[in-house]
Write a protein that binds this DNA or RNA. Structure first.
Lengths: 131, 131
DNA sequence: CGGCATCCCCACAGATACTG
DNA sequence: CAGTATCTGTGGGGATGCCG
């Protein structure tokens, strides 16, 4: 009777979940991860580094479209999150090698699962977007 | 606009002299999907709708922090990509039901794989960010 | 070679108010 | 209940230039 707590009897026969369901608790770290790796370039770099190690300019050429600024920012971000390791070889000229850490490599697995889904279903998304 | 492999081919350019690296071809749809579902709210909504169907204000309360504008935009985006279905029940007051489409439900699987990873490893990210 | 510093822009998140 | 309309700020991201 009170308008503050509207029941929807037909849709939900049993108990309505609490206002803050565990889904949010479960989804919140996901959100964190997505915010971290879901930007324009990060997972692109992660996937590349999943194949082999890259040097800075190698990545710059491989991604092709990324600016130096964004590549650096992306790598630094992944590095501070422990997903990517940065190894400086004190040669001349300097050489910097980027690798996936074990943590980064573990991310690669669910990421490639999503990648497979994307490759498989992205046409559907594009098709659905037409209509 | 996907700047990732935007070639901006000039009209006279008939063939690509250099093949685009396959890593980019493989990663590009992933990027599309991430750009679509990797925003602040989309996958939160997808995960919620993976449990059951929701009505508009139910979602508004469940997400709790999202504005009406953002919820609407998120739902519209997911809808136009064929991930979410919107069913209007012509009652009074109006009632709108949101569900995952089969396509959306198929996304749920790799998404929850990533979600599991996130729940498991997000502490590591946070810990790594300290140092 | 492998960056960092700076300037700038615009797309998009968020709040607020109003409507069928 | 389920949205639209409008305004505004923030920051992601590109371009350019310089440096160890």
């Amino acid at each position: 009777m009170s308008a503050t707590h509207t029941r929807v009897p037909s849709l939900v026969e049993h108990q309505l979940p609490q206002p803050v369901p565990q889904a949010e608790l479960a989804a919140c770290p996901v959100n964190e991860v997505f915010r971290r790796v879901g930007d324009k370039w990060s997972m692109l770099v992660v996937i590349l580094l999943g194949k082999r190690s890259y040097r800075y300019n190698e990545l710059h050429r491989a991604v092709e479209g990324i600016s130096q600024r964004m590549l650096t920012r992306t790598l630094r971000g992944l590095e501070t999150d422990g997903l990517v390791s940065r190894t400086v070889h004190p040669t001349v000229p300097p050489s910097v090698e980027y690798d996936l850490t074990p943590l980064g490599r573990s991310l690669l697995e669910p990421l490639s699962a999503l990648a497979d889904w994307a490759v498989k279903h992205e046409p559907h998304l594009a098709a659905a977007r037409e209509s």
